[in-house]
């Protein structure tokens, strides 16, 4: 199978299930990707789906849901392959999947970290260990404290 052609950014769907159903009916019936992007500053989760048709053409679609009480209608009725994707999102981001036929844990063992892919979830081990790059280079008074790559600002352990 050839790689799907680059798809345009895709539409923001107002009605998630209806919008995706429209795409599936238009031939984009292969579920390639279903995931969530966390936008903590906006207070939103962005749900992203990538669907592929028989000619290996892809299409993206998005919808935004409230981050504090994230609820999303399940796509399993129209895309059975969404079953595990949605269970994964329920665990990793804490999204409640309305109408999911099997809303149980999929990947995570019992863990003290509730929804680990949320950007504001601190990684306990990073807080136990200071970043070695925080020291200033010799002879230079740093104007700002450098931050490690890939680590969103995390609340202090005590704060």
């Amino acid at each position: 199978m050839t790689a799907p052609n680059p798809a345009p950014p895709g539409a923001q769907l107002g009605d998630w299930v209806a919008g995706v159903t429209e795409l599936v009916d238009a031939g984009f019936d292969y579920l390639d990707l279903l995931t969530v992007v966390d936008w903590p500053d906006a207070g939103e989760f962005e749900v992203v789906i990538h669907l592929v048709n028989g000619d290996a053409q892809g299409v993206f679609a998005h919808t935004r849901i409230d981050r504090e009480a994230p609820v999303l209608d399940s796509l399993v009725g129209i895309l059975p392959a969404a079953n595990w994707h949605e269970r994964e999102l329920a665990e990793m981001f804490g999204v409640t999947m309305t109408g999911h036929p099997e809303p149980t844990r999929l990947l995570l063992a019992d863990s003290p970290v509730a929804h680990p892919l949320r950007k504001d979830v601190p990684l306990p081990r990073r807080q136990d260990r200071p970043w070695p790059g925080a020291k200033p280079e010799p002879g230079r008074r740093s104007r700002r404290t450098p931050r490690p790559h890939g680590a969103p600002d995390q609340p202090d352990r005590d704060g």
């Binding site: 260990r129 970043w131 070695p132 790059g133 020291k135 200033p136 280079e137 010799p138 450098p146 490690p148 790559h149 890939g150």
Partner: peptide, 13 residues
């Protein structure tokens, strides 16, 4: 030169 670049770029710390 102790410039700290390697320390800061290291993904593994």
């Amino acid at each position: 030169t102790s410039c700290m670049l390697c320390v800061r770029e290291c993904p593994d710390w």
